[in-house]
């Protein structure tokens, strides 16, 4: 516990994690999140896992935080983003968090990992690569498919559908939502409006 680097980095990491959640400006929250992620990367460096650290920075700072900030900039004027939580709720959350820290921390301190002696051997990059491509190769395939799925999914969601050809009117009408109608009862908002609209169109034809 006497390692000054460790203490500094952990204080910065934890503080910026709290700032990320609590700072009023969302964009500063995102920057604080980036600092937290960098702090984790520095922990990795302290743990002789340089490759993981660099991977962490490349993926998180280079992609994830950029995406988050981009989204924040896109939607930052939206009022519904700034829904505020009540003070009581916040106190409750803090109590839960402290309880978790206390309970799990006590359990941890009681467990025998405190007496573990660190060994000198350091896992190498070659070992990681070998493990990933032999033992974990099916998981690697699954990961590739996961990334493919997320790309396909994100593209489909982010794309603006301009109705093409036959489906034009119908496709657009499908999800359209009329506030009066669907707030009145238990009805499903989306597709029903579409169906109704479509039926009108069908009659016109």
């Amino acid at each position: 516990m006497s390692d000054p680097y460790f203490i500094t980095v952990s204080v910065i990491t934890i503080a910026s994690a709290i700032i990320a959640l609590e700072f009023r400006e969302l964009i500063y929250g995102a920057i604080a999140l980036a600092v937290t992620l960098l702090g984790i990367a520095i922990f990795f460096v302290l743990l002789d896992a340089t490759f993981v650290a660099m991977f962490q920075i490349t993926v998180y700072v280079g992609a994830v935080v950029v995406l988050i900030i981009f989204t924040i900039m896109l939607v930052r004027r939206e009022a519904w983003l700034r829904l505020d939580e009540g003070g009581r709720r916040r106190v409750m959350g803090a109590v839960i968090a402290l309880a978790i820290i206390g309970l799990l921390g006590a359990l941890l301190a009681a467990s025998s990992i405190a007496r573990w002696q660190a060994s000198e051997s350091v896992p190498t990059l070659m070992q990681i690569g070998e493990e990933m491509l032999t033992y974990y190769s099916p998981a690697f395939i699954a990961l590739a498919l996961t990334l493919a799925a997320s790309v396909v999914g994100a593209l489909v969601l982010a794309k603006v559908d301009r109705g093409k050809g036959r489906d034009k009117g119908k496709g657009e009408g499908e999800g359209e939502w009329d506030e009066e109608e669907s707030s009145s009862g238990f009805e499903r908002g989306g597709e029903l409006e579409g169906e109704r609209k479509e039926s009108v169109e069908g009659e016109e034809r």
Binding site: M54, T58, V61, G62, A63, V65, V66, I69
Partner: peptide, 10 residues
């Protein structure tokens, strides 16, 4: 290098 290049767009 790529990790550092990631800082530029951000």
């Amino acid at each position: 290098v790529f990790a550092l290049l990631g800082f530029f767009p951000l």
